[in-house]
Design a protein around this nucleic acid. Structure first.
Length: 424
RNA sequence: GGAGAGAUGGCCGAGUAGGCUGAAGGCACUCGCCUGCUAAGCGAGUGAGGGGCCUAAAACCCCUCCGCGGGUUCGAAUCCCGCUCUCUCCGCCA
């Protein structure tokens, strides 16, 4: 949610930002119109209420003195009817006002390159060494089946397409990755570990911006106002919804593992093989609450934290900076680390690191008290560290050997208890 | 799932025969005073949201808020109805 005052005072500036994001700048005009109406009605109601209050009180006094109050009573009653009528009108206006405000995207940071879609994102840098194979490397889904790590067929039986079953050392590798990532962020980067619920209510979904606009992307529990967690960003950011934090506690840093559930509507035919695009996957997510003036410093730290995992696993990757058109609804700036898939010879998004500034904080009403006693909205940020399934896919493709075995990355060996996965 | 109790400000906690109660008291916090230091003590202050005024901020004025939503009434923290959540007991259960 944007600051309503900003829209009132700098409508052209806001329109420009919205346009660069690929949204309709007309929303600003619609907002200004309803905003004006809203304030007119509020003013009118406040005045009427004020009169009613005074008359009501005078009735009390007159009654005590034994005076007749029938006339005033009738008058106030009429006043009340009028207030009811305007209140009803205001109710409708407020709803529209809120709807528009919630559907306006966050503005891009001025330094974000303007671009229409993902084709105009910038590759900032490439890191790590891409391995040269002396044989033809196999895609991860082939290796996984050959080594008995993933069962695609049976997943279809129990759930459907875009699901997979991890088996044996595949399941263990997934668990090892989750533990390794969380431990690393806790021990080296100072995050506090959180294990939140996976079923999330509507207010929380609105707080982080998934609702009302993106309902079709999420799974909803039938007959209840509960949604399946699409990313730990939602439960973890909402940890502090409607709270006032202390300035000295900022920045607050959480790391959480959750399963993530997504409908992947509109992705038909995309990434149909393997475990790149599925309805359920595991992810370790980092979330930060910061003071406004520190949020960009925190964004770069967050990016570095995500990269640390890639470096520790010795996986080659590149960092993309998203252009305005690919920032998404909520972000002001966003970087996507992409891991290199050795067999498919392409980079695949494995993390996403964003600064939402005060956009989510306004929606979720997350504030902090400054030393001077002022209340201000915090800035919220998050970044995957990392998407677990895609990390496994990258390990399978980049660490495969000619005999069909997989070397376990050094940092995972103590979690796996072995240094290699071989064919039986 | 069944029975009962409750939901008030940052926290604790008063307040129901409806009328200056945004709300006593305490704690915490801030400022000042006092005091070898600390503790104690003394004095003052401290909710949020919205609207108006205004170039802007402060001040000031007004409205709303005692879990949420509705009703009764000239007037509701106080009365009535629905919902949500919390706690206790019972049942069930990983």
């Amino acid at each position: 949610m944007l600051d309503p005052n900003l829209i009132r005072e700098k409508p052209e500036f806001v329109k420009e930002g919205i346009k660069n994001k690929g949204s309709d700048p007309n929303l600003v005009d619609k907002f200004l119109e309803i905003d004006k109406k809203r304030r007119e009605l509020i003013k009118e109601i406040d005045n009427l209420r004020h009169t009613r209050k005074e008359l009501s009180e005078s009735i009390g006094k007159k009654l005590k003195q034994g005076e007749n109050v029938d006339d005033i009573r009738a008058e106030v009653r009429k006043l009340g009817d009028k207030i009811d009528q305007i209140e009803k009108e205001l109710e409708g206006v407020e709803k529209t006002y809120k709807d528009i405000l919630l559907s306006i995207p966050n503005l891009p940071h001025p330094s974000v390159p303007v671009g229409k879609d993902e084709t105009e994102n910038l590759v900032l840098r490439k890191e790590g060494r891409i391995r040269e194979f002396s044989f033809t490397p196999k895609p991860h889904w082939e290796i996984a089946e050959e080594l008995g790590l993933i069962d695609f067929k049976r997943a279809v039986k129990i759930s459907g397409s875009r699901f997979y079953v991890l088996t044996g050392l595949g399941a263990k590798l997934e668990r090892a990755l989750i533990s390794f990532m969380i431990d690393y962020h806790v021990e080296h980067h100072g995050y506090k570990e959180v294990f939140p619920p996976f079923l999330i209510n509507r207010d929380s979904m609105i707080g982080t911006g998934q609702l009302p606009k993106f309902a079709e992307d999420m799974y909803k529990i039938e007959g209840e106002e509960l949604y399946l967690d699409p990313t730990a960003e939602v439960p973890v950011t909402n940890l502090h919804r409607d709270e006032i934090l202390n300035e000295e506690d900022l920045p607050i840093k959480y790391v959480a593992y959750t399963a993530c559930f997504r409908k992947e509507a509109g992705a038909a035919g995309k990434d149909t093989r393997g475990i790149i695009r599925v309805h359920q996957f595991n992810k370790v997510e980092m979330v930060r609450f910061t003071k406004p003036e520190d949020s960009y410093k925190n964004l770069y730290e967050l990016l570095d934290n995500a990269e640390d995992i890639l470096r520790a696993l010795e996986l080659p990757y590149q960092i993309k900076m998203m252009c305005t058109g690919d920032l998404g609804f909520t972000a002001a700036m966003k970087f996507d680390p992409e891991v290199y898939m050795g067999a498919q010879e392409k980079y695949v998004e494995i993390s996403s690191v964003s600064n939402f500034e005060d956009f989510q904080a306004r929606r979720a009403n997350i504030r902090y008290k400054t030393k001077d006693g002022d209340l201000k909205f915090v800035h919220t940020l998050n970044g995957s560290g990392l998407a677990v399934g895609r990390t496994m896919a990258a390990i399978l493709e980049n660490y495969q050997n000619e005999d069909g075995s997989i070397t376990i990355p050094k940092v995972l060996q103590k979690y796996m208890g072995i240094d290699k996965i071989t064919r039986k």
